[in-house]
Computed example of a mutant assay.
Amino acid sequence: MNTHQGNRRTPQAQDVDKHPEELRGDLNPDALAGQNIGTEGEHPERAGLSLYDIKAAHTRFAEFSADELKRIRIVPPGSRLLQRATYIDLEDPQRREFTATGEMEAGDGRLIVAKSDTDHELWNRLRRVPDPYRTGTQG
């Protein structure tokens, strides 16, 4: 498999077959773990509960309507986070964005939300951005 973007080589896709077939399982068991290549395969991080499905969230996130809580998807515990994707952990008091690395996964007891699965106004409200224009709350 040879994947190019302009003149740039995409090493992740080429590195899958870098070992002889009989040794791949031992030398590179999770060859594409955490890589953002293509759209094939399962995405368990997108099949999680919504914030609405978590009863305690109704009180804790009272500034969000029921419809908004339903649109906030929680990455299921144990799901690998996509490398270089942006997330927020709602358990973080500062609600800072972070960029995932290939070995990161959603931990138990965490409320991890992917930016790619959240509209920008709702994302900014989750991050407590005070600008009404960015949060869609302008009058």
Rank of each mutant, 00 (worst) to 15 (best):
L90A: 06
I72L: 07
T118I: 05
R80P: 02
N7P: 05
G41M: 01
G136E: 02
A106Q: 02
E103V: 11
L111P: 07
A31I: 06
D119I: 02
E21I: 09
R84V: 09
Q12K: 13
G38W: 05
D108Y: 12
G48C: 00
F61D: 06
R71Q: 15
Y133M: 15
K55N: 11
A85F: 08
P132S: 13
K70N: 07
E42K: 14
P77F: 02
H120N: 12
L126S: 03
I54F: 05
P20W: 06
I74N: 00
R73L: 08
R60H: 11
L81A: 01
M1A: 14
D67L: 09
P20M: 04
E40A: 10
L32R: 04
V75K: 00
R8N: 15
P76R: 00
R60S: 13
D92N: 07
E22M: 08
D67F: 06
N2P: 10
K115G: 01
E103H: 09
H4L: 15
G41W: 03
A106C: 05
A33R: 08
Q14A: 11
A57I: 01
H43K: 15
M1W: 05
M1N: 13
L49F: 12
A47R: 13
A66Q: 10
A31V: 07
H58T: 05
H4E: 14
H43C: 12
G78C: 01
G6M: 09
G6A: 12
G136Y: 01
R110I: 05
D15M: 07
D117K: 13
I72F: 02
N124A: 09
P132D: 11
R127K: 04
P44Y: 01
E45A: 11
E45P: 05
Y52W: 08
E121D: 11
T137R: 13
N28H: 08
R9M: 12
E91A: 12
R127G: 01
L49A: 11
T3K: 15
I74A: 02
Q35C: 15
M104D: 07
G109Q: 04
R73Y: 04
V16H: 06
R110V: 09
E68Q: 06
T86E: 12
N2V: 13
I54M: 07
I72E: 00
D53I: 00
G41I: 05
V129L: 11
L23E: 15
G38E: 01
S50Y: 02
D117F: 03
T10D: 13
E105G: 09
K18A: 14
S50N: 01
A100I: 02
E97I: 01
F61E: 04
R24C: 12
H120S: 14
Q138L: 13
L49Q: 10
K70D: 10
R60E: 15
R73H: 09
T135S: 00
L69A: 05
E21L: 09
E68S: 02
P77L: 03
A13P: 03
F98G: 11
L27F: 00
S116E: 13
N7T: 14
V75E: 00
K70Q: 14
L122C: 04
V16A: 09
Q5L: 14
G139M: 12
M1D: 12
R46C: 08
R110N: 11
F64N: 01
E45Y: 05
I88H: 02
K115W: 00
V113I: 08
T59K: 15
R110Y: 06
F98L: 08
A57R: 00
L82Y: 06
T99Q: 10
F98A: 07
E68C: 00
T137A: 05
T101M: 11
K115N: 04
